[in-house]
């Protein structure tokens, strides 16, 4: 059981992700540079937050075309677990591993605040440890977190239980208050909130602990 964190040149949450994974999920965490074409043998791939290639174009658009993403897609197709957090979520929609798109926040401003969330599906590999917990709180920090998909897609996401997290108070205009979704097969998750920053009571944030515990369970 091991994990890889992909490092784009503008990733800035890679260290936080490595540290949360190693502390709460698995000791075996590799950092993989964006120009690699192969992944080490891992069970989980995490695309961290940040500004992968500066995001001067659409967020995540260039990262989706970087050499390592072919290997990440293959890993996902084979059923391997993939997590995209914030910029990682944007990369996953740009790669079409997840449906929809992340547009600029409705307020047109970057927004960093603690977001109360509803855990909508505790049956996924990413959320099992939230069982019995209807709600949690995790920080958001993004400019482009306004989730959009057409109604048919949104209905399907709801029908198939693919909505993992919803905002209690929609901060960014996301369709149907969506904060995080999985793919249909349930092995790929994207979310805008940052669970890797919410694993330490001293920082006042612990809402992400159950997320990394869920991953630990899924990998064991």
């Amino acid at each position: 059981m091991s994990a890889a964190v992909i490092v784009f040149p503008g990733s800035n949450c890679d260290r936080d992700a490595v540290s949360a994974l190693s502390k709460h999920t698995t000791k075996q965490v590799h950092r993989v540079w964006h120009r690699e074409t192969d992944l080490p043998k891992v069970d989980l791939v995490l695309l961290p937050g940040g500004f992968s290639y500066g995001d001067y174009l659409r967020s995540g658009a260039i990262a989706a075309r970087s050499p390592i993403m072919k290997a990440v897609s293959k890993h996902a197709m084979r059923g391997g677990l993939v997590v995209g957090i914030c910029n990682g979520f944007q990369v996953l929609t740009e790669t079409h591993l997840l449906p929809g798109a992340l547009m600029r926040n409705v307020g047109l401003k970057f927004l960093c605040k603690t977001a109360p969330l509803r855990v909508e599906n505790t049956q996924t590999a990413f959320t099992r440890a939230y069982a019995g917990q209807e709600s949690t709180s995790i920080l958001i920090a993004h400019h482009d977190g306004n989730y959009f998909a057409d109604d048919e897609t949104l209905d399907r996401l709801e029908g198939e239980g693919q909505i993992a997290f919803r905002y209690v108070q929609n901060p960014n205009g996301s369709s149907r208050d969506i904060a995080g979704i999985t793919n249909k097969a349930g092995n790929v998750l994207g979310m805008m909130p940052h669970p890797e920053r919410a694993v330490d009571a001293l920082t006042g944030q612990t809402g992400g602990l159950a997320f990394f515990e869920s991953l630990a369970g899924a990998l064991s």
């Binding site: 949450c13 540290s19 970057f110 927004l111 920053r197 920082t203």
Partner: peptide, 14 residues
């Protein structure tokens, strides 16, 4: 103002 600043990246902000 400060909600437009990422205050918690690096996960050491107390």
């Amino acid at each position: 103002i400060w909600e437009q600043y990422d205050r918690h990246v690096m996960a050491d902000t107390i």
